[in-house]
Amino acid sequence: MRRGYMIVISMMVFLCLSPLVSLSGTEAPSSGDILNHVDDLFRGSSSRATMVMKVVTSHYTREMTLKAWSKGKDYSLVRILEPLKEKGTSTLKARTNIWNYLPKVKRVIKVPSSMMGGSWMGSHFTNDDLIKESRMADDYTHSITFRGIRDGQAVIDLTLIPRPDAAVVWGKVVATVRENDWTPVKIDYYGEKLGLERSLVFSDIRELDGRMLPASMRITPTDKQGEYTEVTYSEIEFDLNIEDSFFSLRTLENPGVL
């Protein structure tokens, strides 16, 4: 039951990764520039994607094929296509609320606050993660703490410290981006005693819908050996014309929308 991977989830669900910013190598970027860039990745545009989510825990391993629609940071809709048993099970997020549609019983259930900590479809993401707004700059103070070559790659480390009153459980977050195009490489989440609680690793950078993106991201909780959730995009389209009204309970309940 983890929470607060704002960047992560927004990426997973909205799938609007960076329209590659041209960066002049001469200028020294500030941590604020990089954060704004990352935040901008999730604003305004819409997307439709097909992805595979693989969950490995000590109790089960499961693989789902998902179809996801998103618009801005307020709206998203995810449907399970496979496995067959769960086909049609869907989640709608509209602003700060989440509903699940359960085709087996043909019912829509609103997820109450007390269940927000629950896992989303058995993954290492919680329902709460889905609705977390990306508020990195609001919730954290940030600075560049490393710039150079690591593991043969030129990277920048941003260290984010939560503001004293921010509703954030972490003690510290360290984000690593590629130096040349600020594509995220890794995000590490530390607890209040500064032990690593989990990390998110981006990989498989390739061209999707004409853009170079990390097509795969894997979240690993450090206290559970061998467990992870991995999301891999197989198809994605950006900047579609989707109305806000698409993200409604009516669409959620209509299994024909695929």
């Binding site: 109790h59 089960y60 499961r62 769960e86 019983v105 259930i109």
Partner: peptide
């Protein structure tokens, strides 16, 4: 009533 749970296999268990 509708029951919704996280089932042991990770799926979203639901029954009437």
């Amino acid at each position: 009533l509708v029951a919704v749970v996280q089932a042991a296999d990770g799926s979203l268990g639901n029954e009437l």
